[in-house]
């Protein structure tokens, strides 16, 4: 199959390129490289089944020839990035999704949207099931990302219902692994980087807020299973193993054998208190659940960060 990936030089996009190529597909990756990095896909240069184009999918999205699947992964995805690029984030969720869906319609391709647990906002139910509508502040400091993805979901369903396009929506929860930028502000690279440098680990609030972390290889497998499935409803993909941020900080210190201390800073506005997916839909329809233990995944991530610095 011939697969187009927008955001193909990003953290998830580049791992998806690897996975698809390893499974015998042809891959065309697009990225405007504002948060993606060529180094993430540099090892694929010269692969005859891989092509890369520097392109902004909010400007236009058109390619000649057959395309079987379009995976829309372009977007700044960490709070640091989307707050730095608020308008680009809203544009890629709206205009970019529109163009990607338009191309899917023209090519009669299947479409998969990389959505996010952020559509649930600061959730009032836990764990979050796909039928929960969410609790989002459109005007808050995370509103540009949350609402961009909510709009992208609505547009995807509209194309599915009105134009009968075969669409899929992956609601991706916190994930981690090699190729995360150490300055992207997300907790996994931040803690690892701080621990390696012997700097204090910064915990926001009292650290009782929870997250659940899914290793990238598990996540990519789930995305692939969703891509080739018959499901058109949103599917949560993530780890149901919930952990407080404070415990996670201690865990990182243990794995890195770091002497760093933990310091506390004020909790940012609208920071979700809890986040944990209900993955029963993915288990039932995709026969998918994460396999990589946090310890094992963190060790692999740590090894990559050590090599990079």
């Amino acid at each position: 199959m011939r697969v187009l990936i927008t955001g193909g030089a990003g953290f998830l996009g580049s791992h998806l390129c690897d996975y698809l190529l390893a499974n015998g597909h042809q891959v065309i990756a697009l990225d405007n490289l504002i948060t993606g990095k060529v180094v993430n896909i540099a090892h694929l240069a010269g692969n005859e089944h891989f092509r890369f184009i520097k392109q902004d999918v909010t400007e236009y999205l058109y390619l000649k020839g057959k395309i079987d699947y379009i995976l829309h992964f372009a977007s700044p995805a960490s709070p640091v990035d989307y707050q730095k690029y608020p308008i680009q984030t809203l544009k890629v969720g709206s205009l970019g999704t529109h163009k990607a869906l338009g191309l899917a319609r023209e090519k009669k391709a299947k479409f998969l949207l990389a959505s996010t647990s952020e559509v649930y906002g600061d959730p009032q139910v836990s764990p979050q099931k796909e039928d929960y509508w969410g609790n989002v502040n459109s005007l808050g400091p995370r509103g540009m990302y949350d609402e961009a993805k909510r709009f992208a979901e609505a547009l995807t369903m509209a194309y599915h219902r009105y134009h009968k396009i075969d669409t899929k929506i992956a609601r991706i929860f916190n994930s981690y692994g090699p190729r995360m930028r150490k300055d992207d502000g997300r907790v996994v690279p931040t803690f690892i980087n701080q621990a390696l440098k012997g700097e204090p680990l910064t915990v926001f609030g009292d650290g009782s807020q929870t997250r659940s972390f899914c290793y990238v290889s598990d996540l990519v497998e789930g995305i692939y299973k969703l891509m080739v499935s018959e499901i058109n409803e949103p599917v949560n993909l993530g780890s149901p193993d919930e952990m407080s941020i404070l415990n996670f900080a201690r865990f990182v210190l243990e794995i890195t054998r770091s002497q760093s201390k933990i310091i506390y800073k004020p909790l940012p506005e609208n920071d979700p208190r809890v986040r944990r997916p209900d993955i029963s839909r993915a288990k039932k329809y995709l026969k998918w659940q994460p396999k990589v233990e946090l310890k094992e995944g963190l060790k692999k991530t740590l090894a990559w960060f050590e090599k990079e610095t």
Partner: peptide, 14 residues
């Protein structure tokens, strides 16, 4: 092959 799939971002021509 790459050249064949490219299109102009302004007018979409080859």
């Amino acid at each position: 092959e790459l050249l064949e799939i490219l299109a102009c971002p302004i007018c979409k021509s080859g």
